[in-house]
Design a protein around this nucleic acid. Structure first.
Lengths: 184, 184
DNA sequence: TCCAATACGTAGTGATCGTTACAGAAAGAG
DNA sequence: CTCTTTCTGTAACGATCACTACGTATTGGA
């Protein structure tokens, strides 16, 4: 039934894996890099998390949950302009936070297309609600707007990886806000 | 003095290398992938192009020259709004051209930060000229605007890699145009 | 024709990749 | 205590990485 207990904290180790994947992406993060960062040996990693693919899946899900909290907090703003403004500003700050790697794992990693689609849909839903609330003109092409916003956020992630600071990213966010049609 | 002549066309082989780096990036493109695509053996590759780093340097320079032609052609438009519109539309089409890999090598590859800075400066110069031409309001923060435009283009590249078609990218481009202040 | 020079293909280098066999250590169950 | 179960570290697996030593082929020049 019960054997030798695990000598490390699974969630702490997973958090270390998240950071590595975040900083370097899936392909550039090797198992030896992971075991070093997580403070465990390869057999322990495989016993606790399966193979590299499965570990990445768990790591990206954890990252995704954290990201979604921010998106939903922004979307909770009653007026759609405030919601999108908070979304973009929060993105700018998250991509340049000093205690985390620059940029965004979800927006950068090639194999996370599904998560990007999910966030795009989430933003579109908030824009649709803005239209029903009367905060956006009827007939606003919310899908195109959401696609534009995700493109801007992805661009912000790339700029952050190139060394841009929060100020520069906040300026990009402020510029993007000009695309939102004013309330009718 | 003169030995055995090279059995392959150097420029054709370089073009094949460009395509591989374009499609998969520097790290994901292996020497064996390159030799297969270029139709040569590894010793021939090393004799003709040096090591992988040097081949990538030549490939990205060739790519950069091609890209700059498009940027300069767009910048040649007399009115700055037309110039930026052409730039964004051309980017949308280039990122989804059927005979080339999706997206943009220069905007995606981590090690090409310098080229991105160069293009950003190029765009800023064109915006500055728009200010002196009276096509943009005096005091327009052209550096921030250029940074925003590059972020959008980079986002377009990512969307293209996720499978977006020309129509979706053109919509992003059209949305981005709303950020350009109207002529005074 | 013989030589020097260059490119060619074969076959390999050591290093690192993701992954695992194996044996010993540490827990609960009897 | 012994037994079973699970985790631990060592040490390796075959595959692939970027790269190259070496012998052969093919050229122009003497």
């Amino acid at each position: 039934m019960a054997g030798r207990p695990r000598s490390f904290d699974r969630e702490t180790a997973l958090a270390a894996a998240v950071e590595q994947f975040w900083r370097n992406g899936y392909e550039e993060t090797s198992i030896s890099t992971l075991t070093r960062a997580m403070g465990i040996t390869a057999p322990s990693l495989y016993a606790a998390f399966g193979d590299k693919d499965h570990l990445f899946e768990e790591a990206s899900e954890a990252y995704f949950r954290r990201t979604c909290e921010g998106v939903e907090a922004a979307a909770a703003q009653p007026r759609v302009h405030d919601a999108i403004s908070h979304l973009l500003d929060g993105t700018a700050r998250a991509h340049t936070a000093p205690d985390t790697p620059p940029g965004c794992l979800m927006l950068t990693e090639p194999r996370l297309t599904a998560q990007r689609r999910a966030v795009t849909a989430q933003i579109k839903d908030r824009l649709d609600q803005g239209v029903s609330d009367g905060d956006l003109p009827p007939g606003t092409s919310t899908a195109q707007l959401a696609s534009f916003l995700v493109a801007v956020m992805r661009g912000m992630s790339g700029s952050a990886r190139d060394g841009a600071d929060a100020e520069e990213l906040l300026a990009i966010a402020a510029n993007a806000m000009a695309v939102l049609p004013p309330a009718p």
